[in-house]
Simulated scan of single mutants.
Amino acid sequence: MHSIKSALIDAVEALAAISDSALLDAEVLLCHVLYKERSYLRAWPDKLLEPEQLEQFWALIERRRQGMPVAYLIGRREFWSRDFHVSPDVLIPRPDTELLVELGLEFIPPDKPFKLIDLGTGSGIIAITLAAERPHAQVIAADFSPAALEIAKHNAQRHHITNVRFYQSDWFDDVPDTQFDLVISNPPYIAEGDSHLQEGDVRFEPQTALVAAQQGLRDIEIIADRARDHLKPQGHLLIEHGYNQQHQVQTIFKGLGYDKVRTYQDLSGQPRVTYGQWNK
């Protein structure tokens, strides 16, 4: 029989070669098996595991050892202090994207009507978070993937969000509404053949949500171009992009006639989100 402590020691040894956070990974996976918080592991290190618990734990450790992201193994990831269901059909929420939400909230009044669209919503983290924080806003979440939309709808239901509507759409193609105060998106922006696509969690994430043509800029250009027909006067455009794409994205925005173009840095100090205002 293995105790919690001995199981974690063995798991950390098994994961050390493939993970920089082997102990955290092991603890999260064991908590998932036990339906407990991490504090429980520290409070009861000598508690013996049942054989089926140990078997389930080691099955998860083996999949993690093969590289499968922890978020996919347990089916969830926290974002903006909320728990979101995730699967290999959607990107894993990342802290970088909290900047996009933070900036979006600055433009949405807390007590007045406001209409916005989240393009390429994936698991729905952006649309649902904005809708939860600004209940007077009318939010549309669009994604080309039916599987991603099902996950986003599930996440809206689990957080009791009622001011989001979901549409399967290739960007704006099948969205009935035409005029928005804000267009916001975390689109694919990694260049085809980028070496990062063969590293870490990205290997298991949907490539269609990661990779774009024209050195990763094609979808950003499409969104910025077409948003001009869907933004109200003085409407706002916010797009997340790669850390090394600041100048190209600003050039795209300015070339399409956006005003007040500027780029914001994420928590790591990397250029991550570019803004433009449509005044035509």
Rank of each mutant, 00 (worst) to 15 (best):
A147F: 08
Y72R: 11
L130S: 13
P109V: 03
I61C: 10
H154N: 14
A59G: 07
R38M: 12
N163T: 13
H154F: 14
Q56I: 03
W44Q: 01
I92H: 00
P135E: 11
D96N: 01
L119P: 12
L116Q: 05
K115V: 14
L103V: 09
V70A: 08
P88N: 10
T97L: 03
Q56H: 05
D89S: 12
I140F: 12
P45Q: 10
H160D: 15
I161L: 10
H85K: 04
E50F: 09
F84W: 05
G122Q: 11
A71S: 08
R165F: 08
V90K: 01
K112E: 15
L29M: 11
Q53N: 02
D111Q: 07
D25K: 13
V33D: 07
Q56Y: 01
F144I: 10
A127I: 07
V33W: 09
A142E: 06
L100G: 01
A142R: 02
Y40N: 13
F107N: 00
L54F: 00
I117P: 00
P88I: 05
I117F: 01
R94I: 13
S81R: 10
Q168E: 12
D96H: 04
F107Y: 09
L103Y: 05
E78D: 11
T129S: 13
P146V: 08
A127Y: 03
L149P: 05
C31A: 08
P88K: 04
V164T: 06
V28D: 13
T97D: 08
D96Q: 10
L149V: 06
K153M: 09
E37D: 15
Q168V: 06
T97H: 03
A147Q: 15
L48T: 07
V90W: 00
Q56N: 06
A152N: 07
I161S: 06
F57Q: 03
L29C: 06
F107P: 01
T162R: 06
D46N: 04
E37T: 15
L30E: 11
I161Q: 03
F79Y: 04
L91S: 07
L105D: 03
Y167A: 05
F166V: 08
R76S: 07
Q168P: 11
I61N: 06
H154Y: 13
L105N: 00
K112N: 14
Q138M: 13
H154D: 12
E133K: 08
K36C: 12
T162K: 10
Y35P: 10
S123A: 15
I128V: 13
I92K: 00
L49C: 08
V86I: 09
